[in-house]
Amino acid sequence: MYFRPVAAALVLPALIAGCASLTESTQQNVLVQTVLDHREIAGVGCVLYNDVGKWFVTTPARITLRKSAGALRIDCQKEGTGWAYEKVDSKVDGNLWGNLALTAGVGYFIDKNTGAGYDYPATLTVVMHADAQRDGLPPPAPGVTLY
């Protein structure tokens, strides 16, 4: 009988330690910058959005956004200069895998839903396309990944 309370006291902290929702924030600070022809372009208006929010920024700037397991879409435009539509996938961080092992998968689903176990790159460099490259055609639909 004495063994169960002691075992629970030792195992419970290990289970909680693996939970990214408890040890990490659901927010992330990122730097957004735009480049055209290998040069940084300032004053570009961008909209960043994922399945949990939408953020507006004029580059270059730091912005705090909410993390998600889903992709981050970036739509930018500067009149007379250029445009860009990009998609950035989130990456699983190390705490999520520890959470999967230590909580038998329960914490994994919590972290996936809150975004706490995922990160976007700390610097988002958006490659702009010159307005002249459009040849009179409209840009692709928002959120389309260009390579």
Score class of each variant (00 low, 15 high):
Phe3Ser: 09
Pro5His: 01
Val6Met: 15
Ala7Phe: 15
Ala8Trp: 10
Ala8Tyr: 12
Leu10Val: 10
Leu15His: 02
Ser21Arg: 00
Ser21Leu: 00
Ser25Cys: 04
Gln27Cys: 00
Gln28His: 09
Gln28Phe: 05
Asn29Gly: 00
Asn29Gln: 09
Leu31Trp: 06
Leu31Thr: 13
Gln33Ile: 11
Gln33Thr: 15
Thr34Asn: 14
Asp37Arg: 03
Asp37Pro: 00
Glu40Asp: 07
Ile41Tyr: 01
Gly43Tyr: 12
Val44Cys: 05
Val44Thr: 12
Gly45His: 14
Gly45Ile: 00
Tyr49Arg: 14
Asp51Thr: 09
Asp51Ile: 04
Val52His: 03
Val52Tyr: 01
Val52Cys: 01
Gly53Asp: 05
Val57Phe: 02
Ile63Asn: 08
Ile63Pro: 07
Arg66Val: 02
Lys67Asp: 11
Gly70Ala: 13
Gly70Ser: 14
Ala71Leu: 06
Arg73Gly: 00
Gln77Phe: 07
Gln77Asp: 08
Lys78Asn: 04
Lys78Leu: 13
Gly80Phe: 03
Thr81Phe: 00
Gly82Gln: 07
Trp83Leu: 08
Trp83Gln: 07
Tyr85Asp: 12
Glu86Thr: 09
Glu86Gly: 12
Lys87Ala: 13
Lys91His: 06
Val92His: 12
Gly94Thr: 15
Gly94Ala: 15
Trp97Ala: 10
Leu100Ser: 01
Leu100Thr: 06
Leu102Asp: 08
Gly105Glu: 07
Gly107Arg: 03
Tyr108Thr: 12
Ile110Asp: 10
Asn113Asp: 14
Gly115Ile: 01
Gly115His: 03
Tyr118Asn: 08
Tyr118Met: 10
Tyr118Trp: 13
Ala122Ile: 07
Thr123Lys: 05
Leu124Met: 04
Leu124Tyr: 03
Val126Asp: 00
His129Val: 09
His129Asp: 02
Ala132Gly: 00
Ala132Gln: 00
Gln133Met: 07
Asp135Phe: 08
Pro139Lys: 10
Pro140Lys: 13
Pro140Gln: 12
Pro142Thr: 04
Val144Tyr: 14
Val144Lys: 15
Thr145Asn: 13
